[in-house]
Structures are given as structure tokens and as C-alpha cells.
Simulated scan of single mutants.
Amino acid sequence: MVKLSGRPPAPPAVPDPTLLLTAAVCRLAATIGVRLVVIKGIAADQYGLRPAHISSDVDVLVDHDDHGRLLAELGTRGWHRRPSDPDTDAFPVHSASMYHPEWGADIDVHFRYPGLEAEGGIFEPIWAQRTTMWCGNQPVCIPGLVDAIMIGAVHAIRSRFSRRHREELDFLVRRCSDLDVTLLLERADQLGALAPARPFLERLKPFEAEYDWGEASAEWRLRTEFPEPSQRRAMLWKQAAPRERLTKLRLALFPPASAFVKETTATKLGPAQLAGRYLRRWFRGAKALPQALAVLRASGRRRP
């Protein structure tokens, strides 16, 4: 007689949807002749550059000229582009997030990457030092180790107001403690990341006071010095010409519906839904007003 256990057998493990999606988007890019590099996600995991966790999306980098073509091809396969924030001064566009009703993860298609500010663009230098790994029985191009480190560093620094990203930066510093920092400095210089990645690089080795880090772009300083949207908008309003200030104020208070649609998977919002989101926006803005006013008061003493 067979003795039955009172506990049912464990269900088979469900594959990580981002791994399947990574293989699928790389296959699609190869089919249409688009060069594509998978960044963050499985690349960081492959090199052990971050604590283990399941990614919420698939991040890929393509050449600027191929960006529209890949998005169009994804569109023919049922993928939709999430609207971006219409205030592109406060939220400069660097990628397009694509979602599909039948997939549990987005594809974030980058044509540039904040913190990597090389004048000639970053795709070609990263492509030149790419390597290949296998994912879902599909060859996948990922950045070389040093490039993956630089991407991870500027990503964590950009969001260092978040505890999780501070922990990721600490993890990356420990992971790179035995590496030759000279190689990281040289590559950071080539990718235009010396100034943005400075908080990471300085922790690996003490530098003489006169070391020339260069200067990060105004966009990078805006992203890292003012994490709250109200702070960014206040700073940009202060810097704007008088005739532009009314437009910026109107966009902050009465943005188009796409500013709210981007937070959902819906294609449109009804009048009641839209009204509710405007009210919540104004309420958040009122709570953040003291911080915004503090930014305006300090702007005379702070470098823009």
C-alpha cells in the first residue's frame, strides 16, 4: 500500500518572465538586424554586481538610429509604448517603456543612459566591448565587465535617495574593491562618466585633491540634487525666462492626460478618473510646496 503524504507536491518552478522576455527581444532584434545590448538585469547578475533579486523589466540599449525601428517592430507584435511625462525639462527622455497585456514585465528600450555622457554617444563604445551569454537558449549580448560596473554605479548614484539603491552602491563598492581602479577611471572617462560616477570611484581609492573629475551635465545635477519633482520644477522655473514661466506653471498644475495615463496600462481615463488624479496631484504639490520654496530660496547660493 502506498502511503500518501498529507502535503501536496510543490508546483514546478515558474521561469522568471524577464529571462524569457530577454531572450525574445534579443531574438527579435537579431531578426530585424538591430544591434542590441542587454544592460542591468541579467548582465549585473552574470557579473555578480548587485544583490540577487528578480527584475521588474528588461533594459536594453540600442543605437539612437535603431530606436524607432525596434519600437515599431514591437508595436506590430502587440507591444504598446507607455506615455512619458510631458514635462521633458524636469524628466528628460532617455528610453521608451513598452508593455504587453500578456507579459508581466516591460521592455525598457534605451537610446542613451543618464550618467554616461560621452559626446559621441555611448552605444558604439559599449558595443565594441560587449560579450555574449546564453539566456533561454538564445545568445544575448551584454556589456563588458567594466561597462556593466559603470552602468550599475551611475544607476545607483542617480537613485541614492532610495535605501535599496544605496545598498546596491555599497554592494558594488565591495564587489569592485580588488579591481584595478585605473581601468575603471579610464573607461569612465571614455564614457563621459567621471563626474557622475565620482561618488563610487572615490570610495575605491583615495585620490589627490587636484584630480580632475570634470563637471557633470546640468541634467545629471538636476536628477541627483533634486529627487522630488516639485524641487526640479521649482529650479527649472527659477532658471526659465519670464515668458516661459507661465507655461511651466501651467504644465505643472494642468498637465495633459498622458501624464496620468503613463501610470497605468489604460489607453485613456474617464472624466472621474482624470479629476481624481488632478486632485491627488494638487494635494501632493501642496505638501511639497515648502520644499520647492526652499529650493527657490537656496537657488541664489546654489550652482544651477
Score class of each variant (00 low, 15 high):
Glu202Pro: 00
Ala252Gln: 08
Arg187Gln: 01
Glu263Val: 10
Glu244Tyr: 10
Leu185Thr: 00
Glu186Cys: 10
Arg69Asn: 05
Trp134Ile: 15
Arg77Cys: 08
Arg221Asp: 11
Leu145Thr: 08
Arg81Met: 14
Leu70Asp: 00
Ala294Glu: 03
Leu274Gln: 03
Gly48His: 06
Ala252Glu: 09
Glu124Phe: 12
Gly33Ala: 05
Arg233Asp: 00
Met133Thr: 12
Ala52Thr: 13
Thr224Glu: 00
Ala257Leu: 07
Gly276Ser: 08
Lys40Phe: 10
Val181Asp: 04
Gln273Val: 10
Glu117Thr: 06
Asp59Glu: 00
Trp134Gln: 14
Ala10Val: 14
Pro8Gln: 04
Gly152Asp: 03
Arg81Lys: 14
Ala10Gln: 11
Thr131Phe: 09
Leu4Gly: 06
Tyr99Leu: 13
Gly75Tyr: 07
Thr131Met: 12
Val146Cys: 05
Arg250Gly: 11
Ser299Trp: 07
Val62Ser: 00
Phe171Gln: 01
Val60His: 00
Glu119Trp: 11
Ala195Ser: 06
Leu49Ile: 04
Asp178His: 15
Thr88Val: 15
Ala266Glu: 12
Asp87Glu: 07
Ile122Asp: 02
Ala195Thr: 03
Ala272Cys: 12
Gln273Ile: 11
Ala44Gly: 10
Phe161Met: 10
His165Ile: 09
Tyr113Asn: 01
Tyr278Trp: 07
Ala29Lys: 01
Tyr278Glu: 04
Pro255Cys: 06
Arg82Pro: 05
Thr247Gln: 13
Val60Leu: 03
Arg50Met: 05
Leu279Ile: 14
Ala259Val: 04
Leu184Gln: 01
Ser95Asp: 09
His110Leu: 08
Cys135Asn: 00
Arg277Leu: 11
Ala241Met: 11
